[in-house]
């Protein structure tokens, strides 16, 4: 069975949340609140409340990056110094831990930040085509709701949107 993807535009968050609430209350057949993809010009904390819990896992990558950074830093520095111990300098030992801590700290942050950024690029599905189902008004002040619906329910969902103050509805075949 073929599917269609719908984009409905709303004037503000209030209008969009009415629609989300109705879908949540299962008053529309063929769509569930889990399928909703909400596009907005700003980040609104209530979006998460309305759509239900959707996990964010970036922090685990950050943690791994940071741990990698500090362990790698330690072993990199000590082994480099140990193989270059020709110059134990100024009365200090070959592996001076206090100074190495400084560099390990920098490496922790360095790897932490880069893994965070790469995790962000991956987890938020950036760096891939935006798709045609998009309106430039989304970056001004309108809110969009994207839903994937079966062909059977297409018209009923469209009607539902229209009766709930949707300013514009766009669709594409999946």
């Amino acid at each position: 069975m073929s599917k269609h993807r719908l984009l409905a535009m709303f004037k503000d968050f209030d209008d969009a949340f009415v629609v989300v609430d109705k879908i949540k209350a299962k008053s529309v057949s063929g769509v569930a609140v889990e399928d909703i993809n909400m596009m907005s010009p700003i980040e609104h904390p209530e979006i998460d409340e309305k759509l239900g819990h959707r996990p964010v896992n970036i922090q685990y990558f950050t943690l791994m990056g940071a741990i990698f950074g500090i362990t790698f830093g330690f072993f990199f520095l000590t082994s480099a110094q140990a193989s270059f111990f020709l110059q134990p300098q100024g009365g200090k030992p070959v592996v001076p831990l206090p100074t190495n801590f400084v560099l390990m700290y920098e490496m922790l942050i360095f790897f932490g930040i880069w893994t965070t950024v790469f995790a962000f690029l991956g987890m938020s599905k950036l760096l891939r085509p935006r798709g045609t189902l998009y309106s430039e008004k989304l970056t001004v002040d309108e809110i969009g709701i994207v839903l994937e619906v079966d062909d059977d329910n297409l018209d009923s969902v469209k009607d539902f949107f229209k009766s709930n103050k949707a300013l514009e509805i766009r669709e594409e075949k999946v």
């Binding site: 000590t78 030992p93 001076p96």
Partner: peptide, 12 residues
């Protein structure tokens, strides 16, 4: 080398 001689490398 590091693991075997660590205490040696720590002498100031």
């Amino acid at each position: 080398n590091v693991l075997e001689n660590f205490s040696y490398f720590r002498q100031d």
